[in-house]
Write a protein that binds this DNA or RNA. Structure first.
Lengths: 112, 112
DNA sequence: AGATAATACTGTGCATCACACTATATGTCA
DNA sequence: TGACATATAGTGTGATGCACAGTATTATCT
């Protein structure tokens, strides 16, 4: 049962990860920092999940990146492109609607 | 951009589908009916997505089914098992927490 | 110097969805 | 009657994305 639950939880989290990530990228942020930030915020993401995600989003034109090599360690900062902002806005709107729909569906179900 | 957005929306929906489905299965319901119900409720699911999902959940012991052949057309009714109820409860709790976390993360981001 | 942390990339396997197709029974309309 | 749509359920394939594990580099702590 634990396994089944954790599998479903995994699935549950999936789509939301993108939203959580985008929500933090109005200002440039580097990956490793984002991992810690999100973990503290209740949306834990593994590094090995985040890096490919960031690259994918960059490839899609949602994010843009630039290397910052002046510090002690080279860091790659990601931020929303203009199109990315639009995508985020639309995604956010849809997500809020989805959440509301599901809350309505769940209303009155208090098992346990 | 449309394509990218719809891809992300797809992802966004994924995990939530299970939750929406489980929320309606405290009483036995058949698949086709569920599709229409969920669509009306703002969580559209394709038949070809729902049927395998139901079967998967049954295979995992979350749901149980029984055929109803007395009507005009044979229908397969699904409902939560006892364990399924526990899974649903736990999933629901986690989902609510996740939603809250993401809402906090998104707070103050009003682009568009 | 050695271990650990910070930082980023890549490759493989698995799970899941969308899409398309099959299949049957019951209506509906020409 | 025949053609078509709808209700109802199943299966199979392709694409996609995550988790997991591994690699690589540089700094910091011991």
């Amino acid at each position: 049962m634990e396994e089944i639950l954790s599998g479903l939880l995994l699935e549950l989290r999936r789509g939301s990860i993108v939203l959580a990530v985008l929500s933090q990228l109005e200002k440039p942020v580097y990956g490793y920092y984002l991992v810690n930030l999100l973990s503290k915020s209740g949306v834990p993401v593994e590094v090995n999940t985040l890096y490919p995600l960031l690259r994918r989003l960059e490839g899609q034109g949602v994010l843009e990146s630039k290397w910052e090599t002046s510090g002690s360690k080279p860091r790659k900062y990601y931020a929303l492109t203009q199109m990315g902002s639009q995508v985020y806005f639309s995604l956010k709107k849809n997500w809020l609607a989805l959440v509301k729909s599901i809350e309505l569906l769940m209303e009155g179900t208090d098992n346990g």
